[in-house]
Structures are given as C-alpha cells and as structure tokens.
C-alpha cells in the first residue's frame, strides 16, 4: 500500500487562472447570446425555389445532397391548360398522344395523365418518382402555361445550412423563407 502524497495548496495559481478564464468564457458566451437573441428566431427558415427565377438547368436533379433530389415538380392546376398535347408530358415530337414510354418526356415517368373529358387531360406528379430534373417544366414553360414548376419538397429536404443546389443554381433561384410558409407556389387571383 502506497502512502498518499501530500496535499497541495487548495487554490493554485493555475486553478485561479482557469476559474478566471471560465468566468470570462461564460461571460463571452452570455454576450454572444445577448447579441444573437434578437437575430435568433424560432421561426426557422427553409430553402425554397422562386419559380420566377428558375432557369430549368437540370442541376436540381444532380446537385442535391440526397440521392433522389428533394426538389420536385409542383403543379398549379389553376394555371394548366389541360392540353391534350402537353409539352410537359410528351417529348417534342411524340409518335402518338398516348402514354407509351417512348412518348413521355419525364425520364422517370413521374407524370400521370388522366382523361377528364374531350379534349382535356389532367396531369399529376408522382412525388415518389420525380427527381426534379425540370425537363417537364421547360416543356411546359416553353410552349404552355408554366403550370409545372420546381419546388423544394419540404418533407424530403434536410434543410442544409447551405443548400447544395442553391450554391450552384445559375438562376440564383434559391432563398431562405420562413418555415410557416414554406412554399413559393404559383397562384392566381381569379
């Protein structure tokens, strides 16, 4: 059995410095809190695409940190022409106006085409398949009404500190918006 070593003085110089530094550290963090308090907010922001700025470059499909992008195509039906020949649905020169795979523009066949009445068809996006490539958006914008557009689907998005797509978006279309209104939908006033 070893004898215990002698006790050192209760408060050494170092301990004193440390205590001082700790107080200083806590004060600093308190100060930081004070400065940040007005800037901090429970109303966190999320990333969203301004459809008016999107240039449909295809990066939304390739740059998201998720394998299947959190960006999806959204459809404002009130803008839609319900076209028989939807340029968002069909390749530029389809063999026929039917749902055959080779006629579909969407690389993942994420758009559902349903007959409503002559000559109108409804187009709906299957979010689970859409990869946000904006191909249909380009087709719809170019010839049609622009009722298809991209949005960050908030249930998929991880809300990265810096959106990996927004960083390289050529249209500078990404911005942070308040979490309680997390979409920039196209809407009409009629």
């Amino acid at each position: 059995m070893n004898p215990p070593p002698q006790k050192t003085s209760p408060l050494s110089r170092r301990q004193f410095f440390r205590a001082g530094a700790r107080v200083a550290g806590m004060t600093g963090m308190g100060l930081l809190c004070g400065i940040l308090a007005p800037r901090a907010s429970a109303r966190t922001t999320v990333w969203q695409i301004d459809p008016a700025k999107c240039l449909r470059c295809g990066r939304c499909a390739t740059e998201c940190v998720l394998t299947q992008s959190a960006v999806k195509c959204f459809h404002t039906h009130a803008f839609c022409g319900y076209c028989q020949l939807c340029t968002g649905y069909f390749v530029p020169e389809p063999n026929g106006l039917n749902t055959a795979a080779e006629n579909q523009l969407c690389p993942t066949a994420a758009i559902r085409r349903t007959y409503i009445e002559d000559p109108y068809y409804e187009y709906a996006i299957d979010e689970t398949l859409c990869i946000g490539c904006a191909k249909c958006v380009e087709g719809c914008n170019r010839f049609g009404n622009g009722s298809l557009y991209l949005q960050v689907s908030q249930d998929h998005c991880l809300n990265c500190n810096e959106c990996a797509i927004g960083r390289v978006c050529p249209g500078d279309a990404f911005r942070r918006i308040p979490i309680d209104h997390p979409y920039l939908l196209k809407t009409t006033s009629h």
Partner: peptide, 29 residues
C-alpha cells in the same frame, strides 16, 4: 403589383374539380 390574374382553365362539363397543389409540411419545430 398584384397576384397574377391568369387565364382560367377550361370550364369542365363533367363537374371536374381542380385539385389543390399538395404542400408537404417540413419537419415540425
């Protein structure tokens, strides 16, 4: 100045209702 007045979609004779755009909510606070 205002939300756009857009050209309306066709009047459907079959009573079809325009679906609303789905907006999945983010992870809750």
């Amino acid at each position: 100045s205002v939300a756009e007045q857009r050209f309306p979609p066709p009047d459907f004779e079959s009573g079809y209702q325009l679906p609303l755009t789905q907006t999945p909510a983010p992870r809750s606070l």
